[in-house]
Amino acid sequence: MSELLETGMAPAGDFAPARSLWRRIEPAVLGAGSIVVLLLLWELLPQLVTLQAGTKMLFTTPSKIAVTLWNMIVTGKLWAPLSVSGTGFVVGLLLSVLVGLPLGVVLGRSRTLNAMFDPFVTAFNATPRLVFLPLLMLWFGLGVTAKVVIVFIGALFPILINTYEGVRNADRGLINVVRSFGGSEWDVARLVVVPNALPYIVAGLRLAIGRAILGVVVAEFFGAEDGLGVIMVQAASRYQVDVVFAGLIVFAVLSLIMTGLVKLLENRLGGWRPQRTGGE
């Protein structure tokens, strides 16, 4: 939106500079303003309306959350559970890339294999991964393995489906050129198919990150003995609302940072983005 406004405004000399400056900063001001207003309202709510004693116990303000979060960072209480959650996240995501990428390339290149895998991909992609959690807990216990598997299943399909779409979208002419010069299927994949699919794969990675974080959170809520999600559930049962919100903020910030980094990578790889993305 903002770059659209700027390109519209820059060459036009009719507009007063003050107005064009306002137009340029308007999105930032309005966007940040709404967040600030919401936070202020939340902060001042206890002063504006008197809360009942019961509600007061379950109520927290942004300043209290910030103090709690700061304390968790300073005392180091955050890092141990966060590293447990992070391990599950990283291992699951890595596995999903290691499996999803080659499988996506193979399914994109072979119509027969794709037809055979399609029912499974459709079924597992449509089903919320959470249904498998009780089963995975039965199989793997409360350790990191069940978490890794949940993250893996969640993140696999955006990567697999996007890789597949990118491979299918490869230029037939280029593939034929590689073939005519005696290139093998490996050469086709290396020289044409994968480079062409790269923007799709990165877009899939962005979706996968969101799903992987969701997977970590739900796995830790229901089937883990360690991790940031576990801390949050325990805090909720002790009515430490500020700790729950602090945990949420940590997860949200991590998610925003990682998707932001991948978005930068996406912009580097080309100004265009695939229309079709996997599931979510």
Binding site: L214, V217, M232, S237, G247, A252
Partner: peptide
Amino acid sequence: VFYASPLVALSPLIVV
């Protein structure tokens, strides 16, 4: 911001 944050994380609070 809301969309990017795993709102599932608020479900223990909602239950409380």
